[in-house]
Design a protein around this nucleic acid. Structure first.
Lengths: 336, 336
DNA sequence: CTGAAAGCGCTTACAG
DNA sequence: CTGAAAGCGCTTACAG
């Protein structure tokens, strides 16, 4: 950077004051004579001076920035969450920096987001390992977890949704209203907590209606269209019998639609289908998808506010569980 | 952070070496005795030491991080671009930090992403003002612009797409194949360069076929579903006559669909409709949308590689214009 | 191969 | 209200 940027010393010199004074007018951290302050301000303007954030961070140990760690950013699921986080961050007066874990180069142990460049972190499921989470906890760095309980029962706050009761309700709808008895459940990715809870809800619903759990009806859909489609095709090939599919989430439900359609099974006449999330596209599918609405945008917003409270040193609830809601459309057999 | 993190001095002390040596094994910047290095490495492991990036940045003036500046992140349009950027960044061995302009708190002149925490910046249309762009250029900071020419004819590289010829081709298709004569054009947001070029293409197509340009057929769709819908409804109310709509982009095309449907106009029988981008949903609309495919993911990927070359001090082309392609489906009147 | 020391650009007690 | 100076945690010539 040859012409290079001006430093606080350049400003101080031009204004004929010490760098301490420049720092004070910059941050409003101590009273400065009006006239002096004016001189400093015009020096700043004349030089087009912008403070060097890394230096500021190093000296002050504050960044006014919140970090968001996600596995990926391009999934439709993350859109509402990002919207909520952006809104929350803006309301709370912070800056937002986002990093997606998926884009990490292999075996590069760098930490693009952490205590060195943020005041606190929002961490979505699977995007930080237990070791790093423990390290952050140990040094007292503020973290809020999204859709994931803390490892080793660390006391890290969590914002998540009512997965279990949502799942239970939708499966019970399938059983009670549509008389389904052999209901497939498609699990999410390995170790994904949302999936674990939804499976519990699924099992509870079966149990509540005296249906026995059949392991051959459970398989991995990975919350992913293509994987769910492949799994469904395999079950069809294997001749597994079923009259409904609870796809785990809406993305997987789309894969189920594709597989069933290709196999000539009608939805909902031959097979009822249900999703989870109520993503934007759910209502535009044919038939419109019956699903569970997850307040994903609110999760993002609430997580930011919770973190903001932590940053102020205030007390914060250790666990926020946002309610989900049944959305009955047509894929279960009801009429829109 | 009371228990606080260990520093390089702690590691040095524990390993019985100087901090310079620790730095060397950390960065592999100079040969270190195997045994010494081993001692240092175990000290690092024992203390769970992680270098403080702000300090490292301040001292070394490198971050190994690329910044991406976007107006927003939750639009469907940005998904492929983000995917491309993530892939490119990962291939090039950098970290990625994303900031959305939209989330900036009002009148807070902070710079969440800049020369202090990144080695270079990818800047999408409208997300950085001319003044800041000029400042970055002046200090020699590497920047690549996306879908936007540099202000004040600064020599900043650009990656964009063939907007004009794409637009011209699709409008000519409407004229030549479907005999449309009164074609509405919906402009993008104020000052949006993609829109300017697409409008030029639209006008060229009219001109090439001897159709006169009618200002009453041009209105703002803002590349936005709801705004396009409202605009379309107003035109319908005003009794403007037209036999086709080139919506500016696919999002706006959805708004056009909604407005036309509500007014009882059939697509394509009464009105032909065309979009731009070929977003994921374009093929699933009813009728399937005729549009122009924009290589948005490739734009993201190429921009990263261009920036990476800049960072190595290599020469880079000042302007990369990726080709677009006509995608004929049903909304123009062709049969799928 | 290794260390002492200067320096990166700021903030913040401490004096005055 | 203002300045001199220490310090934030690193990297990197410079010596040896």
């Amino acid at each position: 950077m040859p012409p290079s940027r001006p430093t606080i010393a350049d400003v101080a010199q031009r204004a004929g004051v010490s760098i301490a004074t420049v720092s004070r007018v910059l941050n409003g951290t101590a009273p400065v004579d009006t006239e002096t302050a004016e001189r400093v301000r015009s020096a700043i303007a004349a030089l087009n001076y912008v403070p060097h954030a890394a230096a500021r961070t190093l000296a002050s140990r504050r960044t006014d920035t919140i970090g968001l760690l996600l596995p990926e950013i391009s999934g439709a699921f993350f859109q509402p969450m990002l919207r909520g986080v952006e809104a929350g961050v803006s309301e709370a007066g912070f800056d937002l920096l986002i990093h997606t874990t998926q884009s990490r180069p292999e075996n590069a142990p760098r930490r693009p987001l952490g205590e060195h460049n943020t005041d606190g972190l929002l961490v979505f499921t699977e995007s930080l390992d237990a070791k790093e989470l423990t390290r952050l906890y140990t040094i007292g760095f503020p973290v809020v977890l999204l859709h994931q309980a803390p490892p080793n029962s660390l006391n890290i706050p969590v914002v998540t949704i009512e997965n279990q009761s949502g799942a239970q309700k939708i499966v019970e709808h399938l059983i009670e209203v549509h008389n389904c008895h052999r209901i497939v459940f498609l699990q999410g990715p390995e170790g994904h907590e949302d999936s674990t809870w939804r499976e519990k809800g699924y099992r509870l619903a079966l149990k509540a209606h005296g249906l026995t759990f059949d392991p051959s009806l459970v398989a991995r859909g990975a919350f992913n269209r293509d994987e769910a489609r492949a799994t469904m095709e395999q079950m069809l090939l294997d001749g597994v019998e079923f009259d409904a599919v609870f796809a785990g989430d809406d993305d997987a439900a789309v894969g189920v639609y594709l597989a069933l359609r290709q196999a000539g099974r009608r939805i909902p006449e031959d097979v009822a289908v249900a999703g989870f999330d109520d993503q934007v596209f759910a209502s535009t599918l044919t038939p419109a998808l019956t699903t569970v609405r997850a307040p994903t945008e609110q999760v993002g917003r609430d997580a930011v506010h919770l973190l903001a409270r932590l940053l102020k040193g205030e007390q914060a609830e250790p666990r926020l569980v946002l309610p989900t809601e049944l959305v009955i459309r047509e894929s279960c057999g009801c009429r829109g």
